[in-house]
Design a protein around this nucleic acid. Structure first.
Lengths: 226, 226
DNA sequence: ATTAGAAATTAGCTATGGCTAACTTACAAT
DNA sequence: ATTGTAAGTTAGCCATAGCTAATTTCTAAT
């Protein structure tokens, strides 16, 4: 999975293109600029460079696409990121709403040697504290059939598996409700017209109400499988 | 001890100036260039910038001197570096000859928040795996009266406290002989004219021979004190 | 006092990756 | 077919921090 020395910008752009595509959006100049918090003009410049490096396929005015080489770099950076998040949470007890920000920087600073050691120490985890899959060294990724909470029906018991958010505030909120990966909840009620969901925490027996747009970011699977 | 956002170059230069002065050398343009592996012309440029930032006092053609602000930055970076080394060795079992290289990069990537957590997890250590003192958050440093091995006399029992080297090869060599901080050795013999030292490892009872120039980098204190 | 040689500086260049302002292109609505 | 608007690109700029080559300064030896 090793490629060759890359600048931080190259790592950030390939990673961003990958994650935009992975969540089903289109990796346009504007989308990338928004994600990286730079101006679109700067993105155009970098896209030309990435294309020259054969990391993306790029036609002006068209969305970009990672090449196989680009994908490998993206996955490597994401692996770094998610392993670091997992390590910070498990080894140092850092709260799950803080680990993303730290990993955002450390992902560029960690060596393969150290990465291996961390993966080893953690027992080669497949998922990070948010339930995001950690790409394996060979570039493969664990696949799961997850759906957002509102896609389940009232009465169903589901196991929360992944939170598709990384902003600290939302994570703190969800954490305070007990909605973390691994938790099993019962869909008690779904208010119509994209209204809030009422959930029952299986373990505590308590009931909570969650806005539809928040529930959309909570991915789950049936029952308390695996 | 917090100051303000600094570039990596600023951190590297202030740290380098500090360590050159700390080991008793004179922080000249050439010395800094050698340490950082850049050309002297580049150093001159950076020195002008550091002076503008009030981090050093600088007169052309003269050695530089850190200001109080510069010293604070240097100590902060060194604290990062040595805490990371200690963490990598203790928490991840990384060998002491590898931790320097990793820390060299991570020292610029770690947040104060994470640093605090690491210090906490380690129980606020005062020394890193090489015996180098870890500056405290308030900028103070543990002081010890150490002397290089050849400064002791035959027959003396000394406790190794610090290795003034960071290259992996020398560290691996010393480690293979058992000469690590905390070990107590007996100076068995000193060959004249800067000849090799014969040492006896107290615990194992084995005898080893060490070149004078290597022994110079091994700092120790009397007996097995503290 | 002069001068050779080492040390340091200056001048001018490079690459990276941002930015703004001005423009071009694509496309949807008429 | 035309045109307005949003999206994207180009041109030209900036800062950072490196480099080489040429020059200057310092210092120690004569």
């Amino acid at each position: 999975m090793r490629v060759k020395p890359q600048t931080r910008a190259v790592e950030d752009y390939t990673k961003t293109i990958y994650t935009i595509a992975e969540r089903g959006d289109v990796p346009t100049t504007n989308a990338i600029a928004g994600e990286l918090d730079v101006r679109p003009a700067s993105v155009t410049g970098m896209l030309r460079k990435l294309a020259a490096l054969q990391l993306i396929r790029y036609e002006p005015y068209r969305p970009v696409e990672l090449t196989e080489a680009g994908r490998r770099i993206a996955l490597e950076v994401i692996r770094h990121h998610r392993l670091i998040e997992t390590f910070l949470a498990q080894a140092l007890g850092m709260p799950w709403d803080q680990v993303h920000e730290e990993a955002e920087i450390l992902e560029h600073a960690i060596s393969e040697r150290l990465e291996d050691r961390i993966a080893e120490a953690l027992g080669h985890p497949e998922f990070d504290p948010h339930g995001d899959p950690i790409p394996r060294r060979d570039g493969t990724i664990a696949r799961r059939e997850l759906r957002p909470l509102p896609a389940f029906s009232s009465g169903e018991a589901v196991r929360i598996a992944r939170i598709r958010r990384q902003d600290a505030e939302a994570l703190r909120y969800l954490g305070s409700l007990g909605l973390t990966p691994g938790t099993t909840v019962m869909i008690h009620d779904k208010a119509p017209l994209d209204g809030p969901l009422t959930l029952e925490l299986r373990d505590l027996g308590t009931s909570i109400v969650l806005a539809h747009h928040m529930a959309q970011t909570v991915m789950a699977e049936h029952g308390d499988a695996s």
